[in-house]
Design a protein around this nucleic acid. Structure first.
Length: 670
DNA sequence: CAGTGAGCGAGCTTCCGCTTGACTT
């Protein structure tokens, strides 16, 4: 039976679109890119105008043959991949792979490129009626992006294998991510904590609840953060305050308001899920993917805060009917995407149907429920009225020479805060104060503080920092975090990213020899040039040459001169077999101890982290303490996939097992 | 959340950006 074929990138999106089109349409997904540069070689001919070699990865083979068959049967084909640079390239690669456009004269299949800017019935039906040709300039911009990333990554990585050790990697995105973490660590190392003291008074007016005021002036001189440097100085001031009388000398009030946040993008969702739920970027994306596939939310990889007008109306209707008109923003709020070079191929992340309250959705999975709640609240709040506050600042004289200051904040109208709360922002109430009021001193306090170094990045704050510089894309934020962890450049410590020695080594090598590539503005510069390709004002090969030729020259002149870094960590240990020094090396399965006498001496031993060592000790202690309760054999400590445990020594005859308490499961790897 | 059972390794690695399952290294 003849039909019209629509090709999209995501199967879940395909299912939605299928509903909006008639029964004479068939919708298939490409599952992302169907062709790419080969993994095992450069795949770019730098001597021949950067001609790329494209291959179909094994995973995509089946999809391509499915598409080919469907195209052959269809009487019209619509390439409806995402409306951005990558989507245009995917459309082109699909066309190439399935033989569209390359057919013999008279046998050409009718096909066109269509773009859905949001997934609504109206938009889909409208767009399908306006097919156009594939935009070759946009495809070329993508090819330039792809080829530059390949040339940079595959040229620099081997230098690291040679100079540091094998398996390392460098790239436009990951290397800047590591640089941010390394430079933050150096700031922390250079930071000198300074001691300072604050003086606070708990005061009350008559029978009011006590409130806190902070000392801000002494003898007409302002007390700033670091003014009081020692306890001695603090005590000298306090001695004059115990018996002073406290009088209100000024009360100022000011109304303020706060607007709601913009709807979620991938990066803001990851940040919020990190701070409110403590989730990693990867975890957040996995749960969001499930919600998306179940049709509960819109697409989760987006850089846009846009919500289509029909949905905005639905959100506003919901607010008006369930919360009341006063909670509705006076006009529809339209948010603008601030991110540099955002491509805005999708809407913001929002509930598919705003009227679906998180409690009425019947989600059985607790994580899905939590994430949906965040998304729903953020979306509804985005069309609600401002929150209004009354800020009060009171100046209180203590005796003749001292001024304290107290501030309060009172919610006049909760507005969007009614459904979207932040733990850190509560009310702080002062009693009704008037000038000349006499206050009672409840307690006088002086407290020691130290200035704090800049905090290490978390996954969420690092993603934010990258996004602000236009580096990386929604689909790569979480994988980039995995890469810099996998390579051992950084480790997670209490949820924060801390650089490892090899992270410092790689960063310093790249910075010293190829500073342009890991410059914070490198991506932005490339993006500007890609824009020139997209609007037809520059050739893509020229842009590639612009980046690659200088890099090639640098590699040719510098690579041999870079000193080999000793990456083996030294230890105090001597080899038990030949008494030569033992070092820590890196192999396929991570670190291991090895004898420096290699290859004559082949002594090795696995490297255990502190935690693993503790587990092992515990397991051994338990194993020594008793015998197998089932067969009386000796017990032994063993390491399994999930850490150390105690098992029967006569395994596999006896399968007795004992878990070690406090045993932490090893992180599951991708 | 329960489940788990070697010992190796030192030459074939790596990029970014699209998209989902297949998968035990």
């Amino acid at each position: 039976m003849a039909y019209k074929l629509v090709i999209v990138e995501s199967p879940a999106k395909g299912r939605t679109i299928e509903k909006y089109l008639g029964s004479d349409y068939r919708v298939l997904a490409s599952f992302g890119h169907v062709r790419d540069l080969p993994k095992g070689s450069m795949g770019v001919d730098t001597k021949k105008d950067y001609a790329p070699t494209y291959v179909t990865p094994p995973k995509a083979k089946k999809i391509v043959s499915t598409l080919k068959k469907a195209v052959a049967e269809a009487d019209k084909v619509f390439l409806a991949t995402d409306p951005d640079r990558e989507g245009e390239a995917i459309a082109w690669h699909v066309a190439q792979s399935v033989g569209l456009g390359g057919a013999k004269k008279g046998k050409e299949k009718e096909y066109g490129r269509v773009a859905f800017h949001s997934i609504t019935k109206e938009e889909v039906q409208n767009a399908i009626g306006k097919p156009r040709a594939i935009d070759v300039n946009l495809v070329n911009a993508q090819q330039a992006r792809r080829v530059i990333d390949r040339l940079v990554g595959y040229s620099l990585s081997p230098i690291l294998w040679k100079k540091i050790y094998k398996g390392l990697s460098a790239g436009r995105v990951q290397s800047v991510a590591v640089r941010l973490v390394v430079e933050r660590e150096r700031e922390r190392d250079a930071f000198k904590a300074e001691e300072y003291w604050t003086i606070e008074a708990d005061l009350k007016k008559g029978k009011s609840a006590p409130f806190t005021a902070i000392l801000t002036k002494v003898d007409g001189k302002a007390i700033e953060k670091l003014s009081i440097k020692s306890e001695k100085e603090a005590q000298a001031i306090i001695s004059g305050l115990e018996r002073a009388s406290y009088t209100v000398v000024d009360v100022a009030t000011k109304e303020s308001k706060r607007q709601p946040y913009a709807p979620f993008t991938t990066s803001t969702l990851q940040q919020e899920a990190s701070s409110k739920l403590g989730w990693s970027a990867r975890q957040t994306m996995q749960v969001a993917q499930r919600l998306y596939e179940a049709g509960k939310i819109t697409y989760m990889r987006t850089d846009s805060v846009f919500i289509n007008p029909a949905t905005i109306s639905a959100i506003r209707k919901y607010i008006q009917t369930t919360l009341g008109k006063e909670y509705l923003a006076s006009g529809a709020r339209i948010y603008k995407t601030k991110t540099k070079k955002a491509q805005e191929a999708h809407e913001a992340i929002r509930p598919s149907y705003p009227k679906n309250h998180p409690d009425s959705l019947g989600l059985s999975d607790a994580k899905e429920q939590k994430l949906y709640r965040l998304i729903w609240q953020r979306t509804i709040a985005s069309q609600m009225a401002d929150a209004k506050y009354l800020n009060t600042t009171a100046q209180i004289a203590a005796g003749k020479n001292y001024i304290f200051s107290a501030s309060g904040i009172k919610v006049l109208f909760a507005g969007w805060r009614k459904i979207y709360n932040n733990a850190t922002e509560g009310e702080k109430l002062l009693p009704e104060l008037q000038v000349k009021d006499i206050l009672d001193l409840v307690k006088l306090r002086h407290e020691q503080h130290f200035t704090q170094p800049p905090a290490r990045y978390s996954e969420a704050t690092l993603i934010k920092a990258l996004e602000e510089r236009g580096i990386g894309r929604p689909s790569t934020y979480a994988p980039t975090m995995a890469t810099i962890l996998d390579r051992g450049y950084v480790v997670k410590e209490a949820g924060r990213l801390k650089p490892e020695q090899v992270g410092f080594l790689v960063n310093d090598l790249l910075l010293a020899n190829f500073p342009e590539i890991i410059d914070y503005d490198f991506t932005a510069k490339i993006e500007n040039e890609l824009d020139d390709i997209a609007d037809g004002s520059r050739k893509w090969t020229e842009v590639v040459a612009n980046t690659y030729l200088p890099l090639e020259k640098q590699i040719a002149t510098k690579a041999d001169k870079i000193e080999r870094v000793k990456s083996e960590e030294e230890t105090d240990e001597k080899c038990p077999q030949c008494s030569k020094p033992i070092v820590i090396k890196r192999g396929k399965y991570g670190k291991f101890y090895a004898c420096t006498g290699f290859p004559e001496c082949r002594y090795t031993r696995p490297f255990l982290t502190e935690q693993q060592q503790k587990q092992k000790d515990k397991a051994e202690a338990v194993a020594r303490a008793k015998k197998c309760p089932e067969c009386q054999s000796l017990l032994v400590a063993r390491q399994g996939r999930f850490g150390w445990f105690v098992g029967c020594g006569s395994y596999p005859k006896c399968k007795y097992i004992e878990n070690i308490k406090g045993n932490v499961a090893k992180k599951a790897k991708a």
